[in-house]
Nucleic acid binder design. Structure first.
Lengths: 340, 340
DNA sequence: TTGAAAGCGATACCAT
DNA sequence: ATGGTATCGCTTTCAA
């Protein structure tokens, strides 16, 4: 390995000078600079980030912590990751996706040791043991998602309440009065754990109540075959429902297929809006679903900005960003069928 | 930050002793060990991996290099990543997904600097500039996928030739004689670049020729709406074709929808096999597609084993693993329609 | 403008 | 079984 010493020797300067040239941290005469740069080129020098990190105490690396074993990477995460990567690069950082088990020890083991300058926590649970662990440590962090009580934390998240309200409003305008919300998320019934599901659910129920609508909440696991099964029995179990809100983009195409198998026409008999999806996923169903676009790209960028701001300016105010999903027209909503 | 010195001072031992206790690298009396461990606990000591990496020259971190900006994370990559993560952990390594631009400089900048002990290169192109860059460096690496001439490289990949042959055989047994292969991959017509597409294509054409079958090759970008458009016009453009091989799982559901829109019945008029897919994706189409299951999990594990073997035993033979996809029955193939 | 040298935190060799 | 200490590669203060 070519080190700074080698470069320094070759250029007849000290390692300090080489360092100054490499980092631009001090003015060096252009003649010397040229000599150093040539030596680097000739030797194929590349600075060793481990040495730099140790000396500096910073790595310019942000760890995006993801419980890969519990939640396989899906399309949405891909969107986050891609835009977050781009943004980090713009701001002079590297972003790496760091798979951790969903557990506080391992979180700390990584976060509090200088390998990363800051941490972006994904798949945040409503009651997430990793958060107190991070608070106890001294690594800056920010959340994508949020806990039940996110005050005092830096986070960016989807505004599920606004998203649900807007979807419900669209459908009530079309005359719908009987709703059903289908969540996915971690596990059946575990609303406590999964923020998106729980927040959507409570917003949904509030909307129902305040507008005098009827609404039920169901769970379906995030898989196409589960979706099919769900769709096939739906009409029998919810004969009155005319409007379906899906917070489960992976099951969505299967649900539509199951509904059709059972003779339910979409949107003739049942209108569907997919919450927090993408054009690509919504287009996999037939008819193409009307959906609320998940602001994944924006959240990725904002998440990176948030964590970098925390790293570089710990005193600054905590970011608390909520972004709603915006409606994208599709073929899956229509006026409520007149009661037979 | 609590350092070994702090622990050593507290336990009245030298830093060397603490290091031996932490790493189990030398026998230490149980009394001393206990004192050291207590001191660590009391102080909340956590070893700094940056310091360790510098001293040791190894980090126990494997970088999974992925061109996130060019190829957004999809389901298949998620499978790789998840199983690779698990396997790395079993073998005492950390795996991180490192987004890089698809470019040799950046590859080297990461790989050759001691931050990672080894590198797993994903989305390998047939002619991939990152490979010579890695060869020139001295960081062990392995490929998931392979270049056009992978001799002398360690790799694990899908056996596309076998997969295509097996799919074709299944369909010829059902009486099909007119085939079409639909690839996805990087860009229209750029077979040279995308290994899976090119290998499938050449195997496909060979199969056609040797069995006296007729086969065309088409491209469709990996998106559901492109798939719909493709499906809608397919029959007009390929009126004779009765069997479709899809190497494009993201477009597949859209293609099936487009076909139905155009009045083509699957599998009555047209049989479809999706190559390199998963049960989840295949289930998003209606009818559920017969598919060749991508061995993503196995490849993830094997990829990690391969790179770790190279790290720990550079002299060992180079792994060159090809795994075929295995057929999973669905609803999308049938006997060839009798000619009208 | 440049250099000498003291760290950064941990490892591991050589003594004892 | 322990301890002293040089070392890993780089940064940065202090002097020159």
């Amino acid at each position: 390995m070519v080190t700074m010493r080698d470069v320094a020797a070759r250029a007849n300067v000290s390692v300090a000078t080489v360092s100054f040239v490499v980092n631009g941290s001090k003015p060096i005469s252009s003649a010397t600079t040229a000599r150093v740069e040539q030596a680097m080129r000739e030797l194929g020098y590349r600075r060793n980030p481990v040495g730099a990190a140790l000396a500096r105490g910073r790595t310019k690396i942000i760890g995006m912590l993801y419980p890969a074993l519990q939640r396989p990477l899906s399309g949405t995460v891909g969107g986050f990751f891609t835009s977050a990567t781009a943004r980090a690069r713009e701001r002079g950082y590297q972003l790496v996706l760091w798979p951790i088990s969903n557990d506080s020890d391992e979180t700390m083991a990584l976060a509090d040791t200088g390998l990363v300058d800051g941490v972006l926590l994904m798949e945040v649970q409503l009651n997430d043991s990793r958060v107190p662990a991070l608070i106890a440590g001294r690594t800056p962090f920010a959340l994508i998602g949020r806990t039940a009580e996110p005050e005092g934390l830096a986070y960016v998240d989807v505004d599920f309440a606004a998203t649900v309200s807007s979807a419900v409003a669209t459908l009530t305008d079309l005359g719908h009065r009987e709703f059903c919300l289908v969540t996915g998320g971690t596990r059946a019934g575990r609303f406590e754990a999964h923020g998106p599901a729980e927040r959507s659910r409570s917003s949904f129920l509030t909307n129902m109540e305040s507008a005098g609508l009827r609404g039920s909440v169901r769970y379906c696991s995030e898989d196409s075959s589960e979706g099919r099964a769900f769709g096939r029995t739906f009409r029998d179990e919810h004969p009155e429902t005319t409007a379906l809100l899906l917070l489960n983009e992976h099951a969505a195409p299967g649900i539509v297929i199951g509904l059709r198998d059972a003779g339910v026409r979409v949107p003739g008999d049942l209108s569907i809006i997919s919450l927090g999806s993408s054009s690509h996923m919504a287009g996999m169903a037939d008819p193409a679903l009307t959906f609320m676009r998940s602001p994944a790209d924006e959240l990725g960028r904002l998440g990176v900005d948030t964590i970098i701001d925390r790293i570089e300016n710990p005193e600054a105010e905590l970011a608390a960003v909520l972004l709603p999903c915006e409606m994208v027209p599709g073929q899956s909503i229509a006026e409520a069928p007149s009661r037979g």
